[in-house]
Amino acid sequence: MTLTLTNIAKTFPGGTQALLPTDLEIARGEIVSLLGPSGCGKSTLLRIVAGLEAPDPGAQIRFDGEDVTRQPVEQRRIGMVFQSYALFPNMSVRGNIGYGLKMQKLTKAEVDVRVEEVIALCRLEPYAERPITALSGGQRQRVALARAIAPRPRVLLLDEPLSALDAALRGELRDELAMLLRRFGTTAIFVTHDQNEAMAIADRVAVMNQGQVVQIGTPEALYRKPATGFVARFVGDAMRLQGRVEADQLHLDGGSLPLVGAAEGHATYARAEDIRLNAEGPVAARVETVTFLGTHYRIALSGAAPGPLFALHSGLSAPQPGETVRLSIAPEAILILPEDEVV
């Protein structure tokens, strides 16, 4: 299903603008992630699409051309996975998964067949008869997904579906979720504050900040060509290289770096993986801490720029804290972006 959002805004009583007018088009079968810090309006946008919040007047939500803006949530035929899962404690796993199908007035036999299908797809066979209270967090997450997908919704909406899980499980379920969503083939919107989740799961990522979509694109596009400093910082943890830009040179406290193209009046950023320790490098810095991460070392550096810089260093040994090292950054790896209005 194609999802078309036009002029969606939300002002809460009291005047807080949670969401500035936003347009978004999502293609059939596409998985789009809304990524941003808490309070950026991403959940509000999702809840408006679901029909759980009403947008400000003038908004239009279309599912395959059909205007659903004024339809209540129960008529929109959406599937939703909540952050808290919102599973019904008075029903078993099977009862939860079958609930949406029962609402569609299918016969009991049809409901049973469809529930069985979804249970198999989500690998929930061993838990089908269990009460919800007897499940672990990861199992509940899968039941919530199965329940949302069973009625074959027009669009699947996921509101931070992994954030209630502990870190190890989150990584594991992230990959599983990405696989399942591809298998369902349903158009999906996925809200998260975790860039890794967004990158792993979504076809396109809409980065949101302060109530608006700042940039939307594929994970690669966002990473390689961020539109603003905020996107660069949020996707791929770019670090500000605070210095003086002169012609095609960036003068930092520890030395000067060549740039590609003029950058006057712009801010410069680099990512840890692009900062190289290099004996002939043009910039001097002092090693503060060294963290061994298995495949590489993460080195905190001071003195090169006003803020701390981090470099990822692979190799068999690393410099010691207190040592002075030299670094280089390839000119094309330095991101030249407009100055943020608010940093």
Partner: peptide
Amino acid sequence: IDLRSLEEGAASLGARPAR
């Protein structure tokens, strides 16, 4: 109980208020 979430869950699955 988180009544609001539970009801939103049921609504998203097509249940009307009385249901």
